[in-house]
């Protein structure tokens, strides 16, 4: 049984070809084609998901030892956490803020880098840097640049007269949040800009020429022609960013670890913080976290489709 599925699944194109003559495909159905993908997802993603949900109903001691079932206790405990409310609010603000900023800035960048100018290729390459470097390293790099004693950004801002003396930007939540959002936008820009650039290249040149002939202004052309044609690329950008930014762990973990206390934590970081005191409660947070991202994405998809119907 097992060997059947795996050997059939490992080389789907060939088994498809040998059994084909058209009817073969129908006979085997989707199994050889999507089977391997489903198998990989089930084994590596869904199995641990099951473990995560199960863990959220377990009583687990600090040492990691499983002491038995906890029922809904861990969820109750989680919702009793005094910090939870502010963490969820912060998560929503963080996600919406970072995604909105990313999309707006990326629209501008894509437009800019779609122009023809000397060195376009090279400058586009530079844009990739935050993507090629690991997000965690970029976050740690910024933490280092913002260091109170030796951070180059502190030195620069002091020399430019923006601040009187070096500040501890990441130690105070009111300044740590803007900096972390800046870094989160910074690392999200390459992917988003590239998505939109690719979208722009699907807009046929003739459309613009027609608009020019009609005497439309630059802004009008952009709003009436470019933006609607960019819509599909824009949607991809928003959905992927929503998921990534909501789940974003390395930026915050690399810069503040969610601290002081949980004052700069999003739900994902909070989940990780809980892990050191209660694994069960942390798993409950993961489940809630997942529910939140599903709601966010579903809400966005619904709103965007509704817009489409209106338009």
């Amino acid at each position: 049984m097992s060997s059947n599925v795996t050997s059939g699944g490992r080389r789907p194109p060939r088994s498809g070809r040998s059994g084909t003559r058209r009817s073969g495909l129908g006979r085997l159905g989707p199994l050889p084609w999507i089977g391997p993908a489903v198998l990989l997802i089930v084994v590596v993603v869904l199995w641990p998901v099951y473990e995560m949900v199960r863990t959220s109903f377990l009583k687990i001691s600090v040492s990691g030892f499983v002491r038995g079932w906890a029922g809904l206790d861990k969820y109750r405990q989680l919702f009793d956490e005094p910090d939870l409310g502010s963490v969820i609010t912060a998560t929503v603000v963080w996600t919406v803020g970072v995604v909105a900023l990313t999309m707006v800035i990326s629209l501008g960048l894509a437009q800019l880098f779609n122009q023809r100018f000397p060195g376009r290729r090279l400058t586009r390459w530079a844009l990739i840097a935050p993507w090629a470097a690991s997000v965690l390293m970029t976050a740690i790099g910024f933490k280092w640049m913002l260091d109170r004693t030796a951070g180059v950004l502190n030195t620069l801002m002091t020399d430019l007269g923006i601040v009187d003396s070096p500040e501890d930007w990441l130690g105070d939540p009111s300044t740590a949040w803007p900096w972390m959002m800046f870094v989160a936008v910074f690392v999200s820009l390459p992917f988003t800009t590239y998505t939109l650039l690719a979208g722009l290249q699907t807009v046929p040149g003739e459309v613009y020429e027609a608009a020019r002939v009609d005497g439309a202004g630059v802004w009008q052309t952009y709003r009436r022609i470019t933006l609607p044609l960019l819509r599909p690329a824009f949607l991809v950008g928003v959905v992927i960013n929503l998921i990534n930014v909501f789940n974003s762990f390395p930026v915050i973990w690399g810069m503040t670890r969610g601290g002081p206390d949980s004052d700069t934590a999003t739900t994902t970081v909070f989940m990780y913080q809980l892990k050191s005191s209660d694994i069960g409660e942390s798993a409950a947070m993961s489940v809630v976290n997942f529910a939140l991202v599903v709601v966010m994405v579903a809400a966005f998809l619904k709103v965007s489709r509704w817009n489409q119907e209106e338009a």
Binding site: I41, V45, W47, P48, V49, Y50, E51, M52, T55, I240, I243, N247, F249, T268, M271, Y272, I279, A283, S286, N289, F290, V293, V294, V297
Partner: peptide, 12 residues
């Protein structure tokens, strides 16, 4: 699958 992150699935 896209919505799950490894960070929350480590123990599993």
């Amino acid at each position: 699958t896209q919505m799950f992150q490894p960070t929350s699935l480590l123990v599993g």
